[in-house]
Design a protein around this nucleic acid. Structure first.
Length: 497
DNA sequence: TTTTGAGTTGTTCGA
DNA sequence: GTCGAACAACTCAAA
């Protein structure tokens, strides 16, 4: 008797190598039907944003091409997922579905419902490990709870059994007797306006092949100097693997293995330290996902409850200036424009931009999280949540309340020649590095010869940082005392320059 | 149960 | 220019 087909339900694991769901389906011995169901409304309120959709379009095409090279293909359907998968089960006679776990609260809940519905039809659902190094349940404190502090978390990870070797991509996938109908990728309407897409296309190659090429390059070039260069937005010192990791075009175990192997090869202490610094970032990704799995409410609400009553300001004008990269602080504006053009922002720039929104403008981190969510090609609910709550000080680590980034100092330290600012803020491209991070303090003749007229060609600062800093400290102090700030003034806007 | 040491990424001020 | 101290108190994790 022949083994009935198995569906592989792809979501954020758009690869064939190191894919436990694919391996599980192949291991069953019958035909394999790869399927993707487009049901963004089921992920609300965090349905994929515009940049993510662009990426997804190309990643699905790449996956389909890779499958076709192996005698298979990707079957694409629209949601609702429960009905879509149910129909496919009937059409193919599948008796099993394999799928990788995800931690996003809405998705995890949906997956539970879909699994239950499939099981009621007599279909076996095999939920395999997700795109993580360690299962969230596997990393616990001595008392059995989840970690809330990174360093002990990462130590516990390193003490745990090392992530196992990644299974290779199957050479062939056995096709069903006949292929069910499928939408084409372009039928999903994922692509944005042409001008936005051009900027994204110039920077990225979505798909497992692009991810593998980038991993190869970053292991040989980036890891060596990672510790020194990763904090410099003006240099290409980071791996830029984040979108590939988000969509699962490369698995964290593959990255881990490649970096470890490289460090072992290099051998010297410097190589090991660089590799450790790099893997530590993978640890942060891990930490973010474990936190979201354990504290699902944090996608919308602060982990530290006291911040529920934080006196956030409401200022649509300030928000618009931040979004458009017109705050008058070149380091912030460069960051925001890089985000819009590339669908990506350097990690240091993310901190500067986020600190400015939350501390200088006193706008809620959720506003920032939403904008990043729509514009980042690597938008990932766990990472985005952790990053924004860290910036706002309401997240897992006990960030000192006085840690408020000064956009001028940060620019001078991490973009010393102003190359980053010159690249992304053309209005100040000819302002010398000495003044490029604070054009409002530059001598008149300097601005004039650089073609800058403040308030005309480039905005004056929307807030005075020193005053904004005082306001933020006052707001934080009011929080610690558990009382509202005096009057409504604290929620107002500090004076403009 | 209590105690103890520590906590990704900073800034400012004054000596 | 460089350097160290101050900037709160709290929570976490382990002993």
């Amino acid at each position: 008797m022949s083994v009935p087909p198995t569906l592989v339900w792809f979501r954020l694991d758009l690869r064939l190598g190191d894919n436990p769901a694919v391996a599980a389906a192949v291991a069953r011995g019958g035909p394999v039907v790869p399927v993707f169901v487009w049901a963004p409304e089921e992920e609300a309120p965090w349905e994929p944003g515009a940049a993510s959709r662009w990426w997804l379009h190309h990643s699905l095409e790449a996956l389909d091409a890779a499958l076709r090279r192996r005698g298979s293909r990707l079957v694409i359907r629209r949601g609702p997922t429960e009905a879509g998968l149910g129909r496919l089960v009937e059409e193919t006679g599948a008796r099993a579905v394999t799928v990788a776990e995800r931690v996003e609260p809405a998705v995890a809940a949906r997956d539970g419902r879909v699994s239950a519905a499939l099981r009621r039809r007599g279909v076996e659902v095999e939920r395999t490990a997700g795109n993580l190094l360690f299962a969230p349940d596997a990393i616990r404190t001595r008392s059995g709870g989840p970690f809330r502090v990174f360093t002990p978390f990462w130590k516990a990870c390193q003490a745990a059994p090392a992530p196992s070797e990644a299974p290779e991509a199957p050479r062939r996938l056995r096709a069903p007797e006949s292929w069910p109908d499928s939408l084409r990728v372009r039928d999903l309407g994922l692509l944005p306006a042409a001008d936005r897409a051009a900027g994204l296309r110039a920077d990225w190659t979505p798909g497992e092949g692009g991810a593998a090429a980038l991993l190869g390059r970053c292991v040989s070039e980036i890891v060596c100097a990672y510790a020194d260069r990763r904090d410099r937005p003006d240099l290409e010192g980071t791996s830029r693997l984040s979108p590939h990791l988000h969509f699962g075009e490369v698995g964290p175990r593959q990255v881990w293995t490649a970096v470890e192997a490289h460090a072992a090869l290099g051998g010297d202490r410097g190589a090991r330290a660089a590799a450790a610094a790099f893997l530590r970032q993978l640890g942060w990704r891990e930490f973010a996902h474990h936190l979201l799995a354990h504290f699902p409410h944090t996608a919308e609400r602060p982990l530290r409850e006291v911040y529920e009553s934080f006196p956030w300001a409401r200022d649509r004008g300030a928000l618009a200036a931040w979004v458009r990269g017109r705050t008058g602080y070149p380091a912030v504006d460069a960051a925001m424009r890089e985000l819009w053009t590339r669908g990506w922002m350097h990690n240091r720039a993310r901190m500067i931009a986020a600190s400015f929104l939350v501390k200088d403008l006193l706008l809620t981190w959720l506003e920032g999280a939403r904008w990043f969510w729509d514009t980042l090609v690597d938008a990932d609910l766990a990472n985005n949540t952790l990053g924004w709550q860290w910036a706002a000080g309401c997240g897992a680590d006990a960030a000192p309340y006085f840690r408020i980034f000064n956009p001028v100092l940060q620019g001078a330290r991490f973009d010393p020649r102003a190359a980053y600012v010159h690249r992304w803020v053309p209005e100040v491209a000819r302002v010398p590095a000495e003044w490029a991070h604070r054009p409002w303090e530059a001598p008149g003749p300097v601005l004039e010869s650089a073609g800058v007229r403040l308030g005309k060609t480039y905005p004056r600062p929307v807030v005075d940082h020193a005053a904004a800093r005082e306001r933020a400290l006052a707001a934080l102090a009011s929080l610690e005392r558990g009382s509202a700030p005096r009057g409504r003034r604290a929620a107002g806007r500090p004076r403009e320059r």
